[in-house]
Design a protein around this nucleic acid. Structure first.
Length: 423
RNA sequence: GGAGAUAUGGCAGAGUGGUCGAAUGCGGUAGUCUUGAAAACUAUUGUACCGCAAGGUACCGGGGGUUCGAAUCCCUCUAUCUCCGCCA
């Protein structure tokens, strides 16, 4: 959520930048500023009335103490009308605040200057490519067939137990999954991140805090009885650890890493995109989160991208880095880099990581602030990234490393898996 | 799940209807003293909104109510603690 003062002071810039997203903001911003003016005006009126009421109440107290009942009662009459009009103002104030909040929730983050314009993922800018794309033989098959052949993942069993998109990992498949999680966590800890195991369900306030609510309500599993949401990413519980917190400058940067299963309803997905491991309702992910000083957040974004690239290189996976265009940029993000690995048997790039700087967009909702040199409270910048999402990594590993003898495990993972080959 | 108790500023802890945004202590910050430090002393020390400012308003777990006036009374929700029950 953007701050109204920020909108007021940077209206032209914001509107210009929104063009990158194809977001038509002129009208809504006009309304926001108008409502904000209304809010100020009614509050001013209300404050004045309350001040008058307070002072009258004090007078009444004094008069009662002095035994001047009649005078006191006379003033009481006066407060009656004051109270009535005060209530009306309060109602109006609440209404305006609600409308204002509603509008603010609909305004996306301001894209960074370097975000390319564009409408869809086709307009994303490839800014780097690493690793050799393997040439597989004719007998090469996609990962869902490999998973079946080597009894690594049972999709049908998951369907029986729960439904589509909830696979059962078995044997070496399960072990490889666990190996990847441990490897990713260890790498992050080595890079200075503190490991956390957060709750897998969050309350409504947390959903609003990181911006999943109200924008993506339908994408989360919602437990109605207890009014809790299954997390779609560890970003939600981890970032919300810093909700309603005031930090010191010396606390920066706060670095956390957490492994969690992630739950997504993925309503509206279909076709080859959802085949095999490509898109699931439940999947594992290791997430890195940083809370940083506004001056340093972009520097930090680069280090996070570098961290993810390092992981992919260690796994010997061919990958490319994309700078997301405005049209593909998430609602809450100011700048996002996606990492995609090449899935040789499917012959396509699969997104495995998304690293974003949210600047103060989340911090404003979260009320995560710090005290600057002058002792003023300022909003922090929040960042996060997948490091990494497991299923597509697994898919690429299986496909790219398949040989006649079996599937080869990358060197760095062998200490974690305890085996070198799946056969 | 049942019964009871509690929720106050960074922390501890007073405050049961009026001058309480809230005593006191600790902690923090600045200063005095000191060669320096400690101690002592003095001052200062929550958040948000409106206002150029003076100042005003709101907030004593959350929400609602009673009242001219609520930290204080009532309702409700949440969390914590104690006991009982159940349980990995």
């Amino acid at each position: 959520m953007l701050q109204t003062t920020y909108i007021r002071e940077n209206k032209e810039l914001i509107l210009e930048r929104f063009k990158k997203r194809n977001f038509e903001g002129e009208e809504i911003i006009k309304q926001i500023l108008k409502l904000d003016d209304d809010r100020k005006a009614t509050q001013q009126k209300l404050d004045n009335q309350l001040a008058e009421g307070n002072s009258l109440a004090k007078q009444i107290g004094m008069l009662f103490k002095e035994g001047k009942q009649e005078e006191a009662n006379a003033i009481k009459e006066k407060t009656k009308t004051l109270k009535e009009s005060g209530n009306l103002l309060k109602e109006e104030q609440n209404k305006i605040a609600k409308e204002l909040m509603n509008l603010l929730y609909q305004v996306p983050n301001v894209p960074n200057e370097i975000v390319p314009e564009g409408n869809s993922d086709e307009d994303n800018e490839v800014i780097g490519e690493q690793g050799k794309i393997p040439t597989l033989g004719d007998q090469a098959v996609p990962h869902w067939e490999l998973a079946k052949k080597y009894n690594l993942i049972d999709f049908e069993l998951g369907v029986k137990i729960t439904g589509a998109g909830f696979p059962v990992y078995k044997g070496k498949g399960a072990r490889l999954q666990r190996a990847l999680i441990s490897f990713f966590l260890d790498q992050a800890v080595e890079d200075g991140y503190e490991e956390v195991i957060p709750p897998l369900m969050v309350n409504e306030a947390s959903g609003y805090g990181t911006g999943q609510l109200p924008d993506k309500e339908g994408q989360m599993y919602h437990m109605q009885v207890d009014d809790l949401y299954m997390i779609p990413t560890a970003e939600v519980p981890i970032t919300n650890m810093y909700r309603d917190v005031i930090l010191q400058e010396s606390d920066f940067p706060l670095k956390n890493v957490g492994y969690t299963p992630c739950f997504r309803r993925e309503a509206g997905s279909y076709g080859s995109d959802v085949r095999g491991l490509n898109r699931l309702h439940q999947f594992d992910k290791v997430e890195i989160v940083q809370i940083q000083h506004p001056n340093k957040s972009y520097e930090t974004l680069d280090t996070m991208v570098a961290h993810v690239k390092g992981l992919l290189e260690k796994l010997e996976l061919p990958y490319r880095v994309l700078k997301l265009c405005g049209g593909d940029l998430g609602f809450t993000s100011a700048l996002t880099f996606d990492m995609e690995v090449y899935s040789a048997a499917q012959d396509k790039w699969l997104e495995v990581s998304s690293v974003s700087n949210f600047e103060s967009f989340q911090a404003n909702r979260l009320k995560c602030r710090y005290k600057d040199e002058d002792g003023k409270t300022q909003l922090v910048h929040t960042l996060n990234g997948s490091a990494l999402a497991l299923p597509r990594i697994l898919a690429a590993l299986l496909e790219n490393n398949q040989t006649n003898e079996g599937i080869k495990i990358p060197k760095v993972l062998i200490p974690y898996t305890g085996f070198e080959l799946i056969n």
